[in-house]
Amino acid sequence: MPTARLLTLTCNATEDWMGDDEVLVKVFGTRYGEAYRPMNNHQTWDINLDAPFGTNSRMRIEVWDKDLGWWLDPDDLLGVHYVNASQAGTGQKSAEFNADEASYTLVYEVVA
């Protein structure tokens, strides 16, 4: 079963105008997983999260800036990236998350 290994997430620019983003990474594969950490500009997070998924499937990865979560200050989806099982063994890849004037770079690899 292939596994997406999320290695690092780098904050190039926060979505929030003042202070840290409250970054939430959600992974939708054969199981659901998530990781949370406050981040500011030019910080890198060593996520080290392994997420298995089916051989003939793909995994959805979302990056969010968690806010208060209600209608005046809803959580902000910063982007979505799909990882395919066919990427197994092809080395490290990167994905960009750039919605709402934020900029994040995720480095991952797919292992068999």
Rank of each mutant, 00 (worst) to 15 (best):
V23Y: 09
G69A: 06
D21Y: 04
K66S: 07
D21E: 06
G29Q: 01
R58T: 04
P52F: 03
T30V: 13
R58P: 00
E34Q: 14
N12I: 12
A13F: 04
T55C: 03
W17N: 10
L24P: 00
T44F: 06
E22R: 13
L49S: 00
D73G: 01
K66W: 11
C11M: 07
Y32L: 14
W64F: 15
L9H: 03
P38G: 01
D16Q: 15
N40Q: 08
A51M: 11
D20R: 14
D50I: 01
W45A: 05
D65E: 08
E34P: 00
E15R: 13
F28E: 11
T30W: 03
P38S: 10
D73R: 08
G29H: 05
R58Q: 12
R31Q: 09
G19V: 05
V25R: 03
W64Y: 13
V25T: 06
E34S: 14
F53E: 01
Q43I: 00
T10H: 14
T10P: 07
D65N: 15
D73H: 09
W17S: 11
E34R: 08
K26I: 04
G29D: 01
G69V: 06
F53K: 10
N56M: 11
M39G: 06
L68D: 13
D16N: 15
D67M: 07
C11P: 07
T44R: 08
L68H: 03
R58L: 09
V25C: 14
D65R: 05
R60C: 06
L49W: 14
F28W: 02
E15Y: 02
G19E: 05
D20Q: 12
T55I: 13
N48C: 09
